[in-house]
Design a protein around this nucleic acid. Sequence first.
RNA 1: GCGCCUGUAGCUCAGCUGGAUAGAGCAACGGCCUUCUAAGCCGUGGGUCGCAGGUUCGACUCCUGCCAGGCGCGCCA
Length: 575
Amino acid sequence: MNIRQLLDQRVSNALISAGASKDVSAVIKQSNKAQFGQYQANGVMGAAKKLKMNPRQLATQVVDALDLSDIADKVEVAGPGFLNIHLKPEWLSQQLELALNSDKLNIEQIKQPQTVVIDYSGPNLAKEMHVGHLRSTIIGDAIVRVLRFIGHRVIPQNHVGDWGTQFGMLLAHMNDLQSVDNELSMQLSDLEAFYRDAKKRFDAEPDFAKTARAYVVKLQAGDPNCLLLWQQFIDISLQHCEDVYQRLNVLLTRNDVMPESAYNDDLPQVIADLRDAGLLTEDQGAQCVFLEEFKGKDNKILPAIVQKSNGGYLYATTDLAALRYRYNKLHADRILYFVDARQSLHLNQVFAIAKKAHFVAPETQLEHMAFGTMMGKNGKPFATRDGGTVKLIDLLKEAEQRAFDLVNEKNPDLDEAERKAVAQTVGIAAVKYADLSKNRSSDYIFNWDTMLSFEGNTAPYLQYAYARIQSIFRKAGEFDHNAILNLIETPEKQLAIKLLQLPEAIEIVSKDGTPNILCNYLFELAGNFMTFYEACPILKADKEIKNSRLKLAKLTAKTLKTGLDLLGIKTLERM
RNA sequence: GCGCCUGUAGCUCAGCUGGAUAGAGCAACGGCCUUCUAAGCCGUGGGUCGCAGGUUCGACUCCUGCCAGGCGCGCCA
């Protein structure tokens, strides 16, 4: 049950009865003051302006036409024309019961499910994943979970970079090390160092550089030995990624990997089809697509180069092939790209070209869910002292270590295995939440301490609220599930209404790809629970009150678990 | 030069299609553990929402200009 949607329909209809046009919006919002009820309709004033009416007069007419007697105690006109809606406690109780007895918290499945392709993570297999890959990976993953939860058919796509000139030097370096026993497998355990070594040799040793270039040519020509070596490297690199995914509790598996190289065979056809569509222009020897909507300096149209003057293809070509595959083979209705904001121009060009070339349908939704670059404390692009980026795996290990230190301090009575397990869950959760809870399309600051904080608006706070509830139930024994849920105290009422607002958060997240809305909701929910927990004793209360409060606690736990699960964050029975 | 993004409390950030007195967390200060886990709760202090105009009954939100930062603009991805 989405209360906002329900009220939107009812109030919109009342507005129309009162004379407003069909496209009127009731503008239903959650009230930020208890005195204004739980919801308010702000659309009357806008509608009055269009009708050239006195807003308060229209508001009165809307109230007359509005029948909310089944769900609200009163609807009052306030200020210049607000409608304040006070929901019935009995109706709220009834909704809470429905959520409690439903396996999906009484959240409706979407009426018209779409096939949604989600492009996320997409690491470059030449190197190890670093902290910059975090955002795409975990935001994309959260959106996969949310869209699936409400009934969409979701197809994750991990568009990994497994092709390009850099593999020449890596393969050449591999080949040299292969002759030394065990040296190769050892060196490949640290891909970052392996890449650095290869690069160093490439820059310093002319013979090596020559061999490396030859390897690129051989690889592209399909030389069997070269392909074998390449496949070996890719397997190891993917294994590194999978270790990180597993640690991060991210859904991606090898089945979701659709690497760049998979599109190689289709690239000449992409060019041919662009030519047939009349979109191709040769410029300075390169094959380009010029679209009027993309203008650069002096009002000159910016090209999207799809084939180099030497015949080679570029990432625009690959992305077009991928887009076509996603539409033709995966039957996507909507394709979401969780990719760095710096690729905004590139992706918008690709989208526009794909539409013009009919690689996708006119109504196919193509959306770049952009996010900013990771910066250091000084506001400059993030880098460690030696100039490299921080490996993602190192951040995760540090998170687990700090969490372990804290568990040892807070809860020394747990046995070591459980303390380790708690530390792992809490540490990873903290890192994920730190990133998921921000909505920055611009650049953002990477900071060890905020990322690894366990206090305040963090994942451990939410996990702690959950663990507290579980503790209550361990002590409560059986409780009467038929007991009446009675909302009396203010903290009970505030918790109750918050419990019913998860669908509204999910609605926004599924539309905009913004998990921070869900984070914010869960933080508020946990906060309302904490207040309730402090103010309203549960186990010590009289039987009826106790049972009623146990129900509220039960639903809070259920909602927290569901919400955290949608974020890819695990809950704990105790911590 | 052109384009995209960003500017909210000391720090990190919320603020949903314009709505009522701009909210959290951290940091600071003051309370609360013989009572369901103190990773918590309650309270205090702290903001010309970058600046200046405009639209509106009403602007952090929309429009214009300026200032500051980041990023992107032909054969890397």
